[in-house]
Simulated assay, not measured.
Amino acid sequence: MFKSLIVSFALAASVLANVYITSPTADTTWTGGQEATIDWQDDGSSPSLASFGLAKFSIYVGNANQQTSLQLISGNVSVANVSSLTFTPSPTIGPDSNEYFIRVESLNLKDASNSQYPALAFSAKFTLAGMSGTFNSSLQAEIDGQSTAPIGGPTSSAGSATAATTAKATTVAAVTTGSAAASTATSTSKSNGAGRHGVTSLAGFVGAAAVLVSAAVL
C-alpha cells in the first residue's frame, strides 16, 4: 500500500540546479523489465555536485503545473560520488509512451530562491516501450495539460524559467529498484533537453517542470 501527499504552493522563477542528465535524452527508448542506466554530469554552474549531495531519483509524468511520480528509482544517491545509476523500469507503471522523465531531488540542498524547497533537476522526456500498464484518467489529464502548461515550452532546448504559478504534485506509486554504479562523467556540448533548474523553475526544457513532492511508502 502506498500513501500519497499532495503539496500545492506558489512558484517563482528561478534557475540552475547543476545535475545535468546526459541519459536519457529525447531520443532514448528504454524497455520495461530491462536494465536501463541514467547518466549525469556537473553542468559547471554553482553549486557543486558535492553541494547537491544525496538525491532521490524517480520516473515522473505530468505537465508544468502537475506532476506524478510513477516509480522511485533510488532514494539515496550521492551525485558527487557516482555519475550513473542502473535500474529496471517497471513495465506496470504505464503504457508505451514518450511522456516519461526523470526527476532528481536533492536531500541536502535547498532551492537558492526559496529555502523551504529542495533543489531539483530533470531529464529530457524519453520513451518506455514493452510496457503493460495504463495511465488512469488523472494521469492522462496531467499529460493532456501540456497543451496549456507545456513542460517543454515551445522549443526542445534548455531555456529560461517561466513566471510564478501554482503547482501540485502527487506520488501514486513507488518501486525501489535502482542501485548506484560508479562511472566517470564526460563533458558534452550537445543539448539533450535536460533540465538544469531549481525547485521553482517551471518550464523552458523538454524534460519537465520543477515542483515539490513529499510521499511516504508504507
Rank of each mutant, 00 (worst) to 15 (best):
K3H: 11
L5D: 15
A10D: 12
L11Q: 14
A13I: 07
A13K: 13
S14A: 15
S14F: 07
N18P: 14
I21F: 02
A26G: 14
A26C: 08
D27G: 11
W30A: 00
G33R: 08
Q34Y: 07
A36M: 06
T37P: 02
I38F: 05
I38L: 13
Q41C: 12
Q41H: 09
D43Y: 05
L49M: 14
F52L: 07
L54P: 00
L54M: 12
K56F: 04
K56I: 14
K56H: 12
F57M: 02
Y60F: 15
V61H: 02
Q66Y: 11
Q67D: 06
L70H: 03
L72P: 02
L72F: 01
S74C: 09
V77F: 04
S83V: 03
S84F: 01
S84L: 00
T92H: 07
D96K: 05
D96E: 09
D96S: 13
I102Q: 01
S106P: 10
D111R: 06
A112T: 14
Y117P: 04
L120K: 08
S123F: 02
A124R: 01
A124Y: 00
G130L: 08
S132D: 13
G133I: 11
G133T: 08
G133V: 08
T134G: 08
L139G: 00
Q140I: 00
E142V: 02
E142K: 14
S147A: 15
T148R: 10
A149W: 12
G152W: 05
T155I: 10
S157F: 14
A161E: 12
T165K: 13
A167F: 06
T171Y: 04
A173W: 02
A174H: 05
A174Q: 12
V175I: 14
V175C: 00
T176G: 03
A182V: 13
A185D: 03
T186C: 00
S187P: 00
K190P: 00
S191F: 09
N192M: 05
G193D: 07
G198R: 03
V199A: 15
T200R: 14
T200Y: 09
V206H: 14
V206Y: 15
G207E: 03
A208Y: 03
V211D: 12
V213R: 13
